[in-house]
Amino acid sequence: MLSRRQLIPIATKSVSPFLRSSITCRRISMGRKELSEKDSNILDSVIRVDQAGELGANQIYKGQHFILQFTDPKVAPTIQHMWDQEKYHLATFDNYVLKNRVRPTFLRPFWDIAGFALGAGTALLGTKAAMACTEAVETVIGGHYNDQLRETAHLENKAPEFKEIRSHLAEFRDDELEHLNTAVEGWNAKEAPAHALLTNAIQMGCKAAIWMCKRF
């Protein structure tokens, strides 16, 4: 019975130094094009910040649902639906993080808590305040996705994987804008108390979060 260790292949020493050098260099540079460092950095930050954004959205809806399922049962299914969509968005970006070996944001524990607190806090203020929060967040996120689509436009035809990423960005942007419409037209978000103050503060917070997650 061979132990598992013995199954590990041991590099052969019989290959001559020159032949091995040639094989090493040739194998590694088999005519593939180099992705430029600038493009690599763009895609790295796009995936990291979007994963963080979808995490934040998840936690906000989780906090809202945590409160509203009891204080306003009529709106809970709508929150649940939007939350389910965000779960799919997050799973998609988690997959991109793993597949493309992108570093996820270092600030994730903070967004976990901040997102939930924001969702639960606005929900405690009432359904309209929760919807104003959704309106503010989705306004910023929708615009952010548009910015990213413009930023990656030149990559569209380079490889199928970039087309796939960009189609997800477009799809998710449309979902976020749908959430925005639901909040404003379906649930009177603009009638929330101190609507302007609330939405402006949340939008500034979201923009700061985006800035940080691009870098950290």
Partner: peptide
Amino acid sequence: GYHSENYE
């Protein structure tokens, strides 16, 4: 960096 399956 972003790790691509199509680019080395």
